[in-house]
Design a protein around this nucleic acid. Sequence first.
RNA 1: CGGGGUGUAGCGCAGUUGGCUAGCGCGCCACGUUCGGGACGUGGAGGCCGGAAGUUCGAGUCUUCUCACCCCGACCA
Length: 490
Amino acid sequence: MAKDFVKRSENYSEWYNELVSRADLAENSAVRGCMVIKPYGYAIWEKMQRALDDMFKATGHQNAYFPLFIPKSFLSREAEHVEGFAKECAVVTHHRLMNNPDGSGVVVDPAARLEEELIVRPTSETIIWSTYKNWIKSYRDLPVLCNQWANVVRWEMRTRMFLRTAEFLWQEGHTAHATAEEAVEETKKMLEVYAEFAEKWMAVPVLKGVKSPNERFAGALDTYCIEAMMQDGKALQAGTSHFLGQNFAKAFDVQFLNKNNQLEYVWATSWGVSTRLMGALIMTHSDDNGLVLPPKLAPIQVAIVPICKNEEQMAELDTKINPVVDALRANGISVKYDNRPEYKPGWKFNEYEFKGVPVRLAVGPRDLENGTCEVCRRDTLEKTTVPIEGIVAYVAQSLEDIQQNLFKKAADFRAANTRKVDTWDDFKTEIEKGGFLLCHWDGTAETEERIKEETKATIRCIPLDSDDEPGTCIYSGKPSKGRVVFARSY
RNA sequence: CGGGGUGUAGCGCAGUUGGCUAGCGCGCCACGUUCGGGACGUGGAGGCCGGAAGUUCGAGUCUUCUCACCCCGACCA
């Protein structure tokens, strides 16, 4: 049991903050709104990166890198785009400091003012499309399928660890295509990649859908998204994939000659997921005993705790356990054998439990006699004593079971908190309970806006796999083509 | 930018109507006993009381100014 750890039911956001800091994932930095991602948290991010990067490569993408700074004039080339980001940009105005004449440290040298200010990228469409102009002349140059792993800055008012920080890490894919159809296909393909990653790796069930015009990315024709449900019933946008049409090609004059020797503007997509996924991961699985990690993303999959009274016993345990460590590692399982004498077993149990290590093995004198070891699963906290002989297979199976079980638990939770609502009165009471509400909507921005004002709920997405029949809008009573997903969100 | 709040040891806090040597818990260091669910004892280290100015014999405490951070609203992956 975690000591002095607030329960989810008591104060969900405090639980989240405490968890992030006590599990050693991240901490606040000296810079407002910016966090330090600690080694354990970063190790999880690296595992996510690795899996995603492999998937991007497998779908034909290459990594590249574009500058952190964007000339101010670039940002304003696409009207909607600048409109969407202008209010949250960090701006570089000078390039030199000087000693303060009064002797108190350094000040900005007024003589070093930049001719044109530079924006710290909030996203890279503009700098990338200004580059693509040089890369693309002919249909033979297409498609361009690039991704970059980068940091971006959005000067947010209210920040929260991983969920919304002023600087965050992400990947952004930027592709260029000869036809609209191909670009749309790319947009959807990457949404599928994100959904697969979320479900297979993170064990987070997601809803695939398209955003209403209101919630669309600034400069996109269509924004596809995956939406996850957190344990407090709120929605979290976990990834987006945008069909940008020819907006950026026109803004940066990127044209190509097609097979008929005619000039055409290039079609674009962009897609991204960020360190926000860490927030999704934490809030989907973790419990009142701390972090719970799906085995596929756990930096340590198995922690082994020896139990002994003295050095001789420890030496004996070492000789028994080291082969087990080797055997597990030979099977691709990441193991931490924690034989530090400074910490007691009970302390270690709590430590690895709080950090979400999926499987813990404990081996003590009792086990030495019986040729067994104790296996404890983090998801269920069940303990079983098993023969040490078949331990590798047993652990491998447990890791798989945990991965499945976490997904199933999350999927069941989502199912239990998703419901159809048909009247406005019901809507107002149901939204207070949290979760996803499937409702008819008349398709207008006005209705969406009203509902948001009155209930703080927004349309999370229009589900892609909706087979719902037409109905009438929950708010206006006007005709609706199908149900959309309403929820309060992060 | 509005409304509310907090700055005292690494972290969490106490500190009375101004009063003499600024405390407590956790953590940290040393030694010993412990070790199957966060051990215990003894000893120890650690402070510009956010910053500046003022009132006073005397300021962590009162006044003014300032800075930073947190919470609630408008913005968002």
